[in-house]
Design a protein around this nucleic acid. Sequence first.
DNA 1: CGAAAACAGTTGACATCACAACTAAATCGC
DNA 2: GCGATTTAGTTGTGATGTCAACTGTTTTCG
Lengths: 150, 150
Amino acid sequence: MEKSVGRLVSILYRKNQVYLNIALKPLQITASELPFLLYLFRNANTGISQEALSAYLLIDKAATARAVQSLLQKGFIRKEKDETDRRANKIYVTDLGEQRSRLVKARLEQWTHFLTEGLDTAAVDTMFYVLEEMAKKLEKVDLQDIWRDA
Amino acid sequence: MEKSVGRLVSILYRKNQVYLNIALKPLQITASELPFLLYLFRNANTGISQEALSAYLLIDKAATARAVQSLLQKGFIRKEKDETDRRANKIYVTDLGEQRSRLVKARLEQWTHFLTEGLDTAAVDTMFYVLEEMAKKLEKVDLQDIWRDA
DNA sequence: CGAAAACAGTTGACATCACAACTAAATCGC
DNA sequence: GCGATTTAGTTGTGATGTCAACTGTTTTCG
């Protein structure tokens, strides 16, 4: 029980950010914008709300608002008012955004390849599975409520 | 090959930070200070340099300097000049710091338990193993050099 | 030896993200 | 129907961490 998830995940997360900011700089995409762009790319033409983006990535809606604004300014996405619910926006990738997404994915795969190279494929799959399960638990929990007793 | 390490690790990292800041607030320890305190605790009485802290945690020495200063101010650690190398500091946990560390560890274990509860033990071990291997690769690489061609 | 390079640590500027407070629109409950 | 509550999005503030530039010390090597 000596192992904690913290240190390893922290290293992976921070180095991932650094890598992305270097590798994607020529494409004018930052590490913080990337997950939004890719999700929109995978769900192209469906008009995703910012709420849905936040929910999928488990990222605060404030960060989402800023990423959307930044991607908008660069012309990678398009933003419309949802006419059936005028509070919400509908976000779409632009053609330019789709082009970039394809280039981005190639570089992401290189990264994943670098990280998992030489490791047992089944073990890597298991890692993904376990991470996914842990992330699922976090989707359902309001951390503010965990320590009501402290 | 559709899966990328990014999203899951990002979720785990960010939620971990939030959890720690809530759970450790009564102990007056922040998520950013925690890894430093715990490492010093595990290596008590050996006088760790900040360089060594940065190397183990793969955290920039600037962040290390700030965490050290903050832990110092709270009286959880002690800082001496290394007399054999007057550039370096030797950092030790104080008695108070050790007390806190023990309390902290209990809360960390609750978190790990929450995350891994109900999952296959062998799968969790595998996840730790794979994360560790990926982190090891990152220790050896200067990301600035990866894209010399781009 | 002594100048140049490497190293440990500090500080300033910036990126990323969480939380809180706010606006505007939609929905709920009586 | 309409006031109260919830929801989508925005903006300000603070925490965390990276990079770059700088200081002071040590090491390297001609």
